[in-house]
Amino acid sequence: MVRLITHNLLACHAKGCTTNNFPLEFKDVQVVLRESEFNPEFLRGFMPKIEWPALLGAARELGDTSLPDQLPEMLDDDFLKALHHVLLEIHVEEGIMICPNCQHNYPILNGIPNMLLAEHEIA
C-alpha cells in the first residue's frame, strides 16, 4: 500500500539523480480509503521525520485539503486526526509516481510501488 506516510519517505534513486528528486509526483492514481487505529503518540513521535511541504502537496494532489499550510505549533487532537487520516488512511492502489528531476516513472500496481531500477541505473 502506498500511503502518504510512505510516499513522504521515497525518493528517486536513479543514477546521478541526487537533487530535486523528492517528492515524487502522482499521476493517474486510484485511491482507496481504509480506516486505521488512531494513535496520537505515534503521530507526535513521527512528526519530526515528515517533510511538511511534500506531505501538503501530495495530500492536495489527491484532493484532500484538510491540512493547514503551516505546521501548527500546538499539535491538538483535531489536527492530529486530520494528520492521521492523510498519512495513514489514504491508500494509492494504482498509478504512477514520477521523479520531478529525471522524470523516471515508478508504477504502483495493486498498492505496491515498483521502485526497482536496472543494475546500471542505480546510483
Binding site: M1, L9, A11, H13, L88, N110, G111, I112, M115, L116
Partner: peptide, 26 residues
C-alpha cells in the same frame, strides 16, 4: 502485503532492491 492484512498489522510493501529509495529520507 496479504500477510499484513491477514494479521491486522499494516505492512507497507515496496518492490525494490535493499533500501535504495529510502536512503536519502531515512
Amino acid at each position: 502485503q496479504a500477510t499484513g492484512r491477514q494479521n491486522k498489522i499494516p505492512l507497507d510493501s515496496i518492490h525494490t532492491s535493499l533500501s535504495h529509495p529510502f536512503l536519502s529520507r531515512l
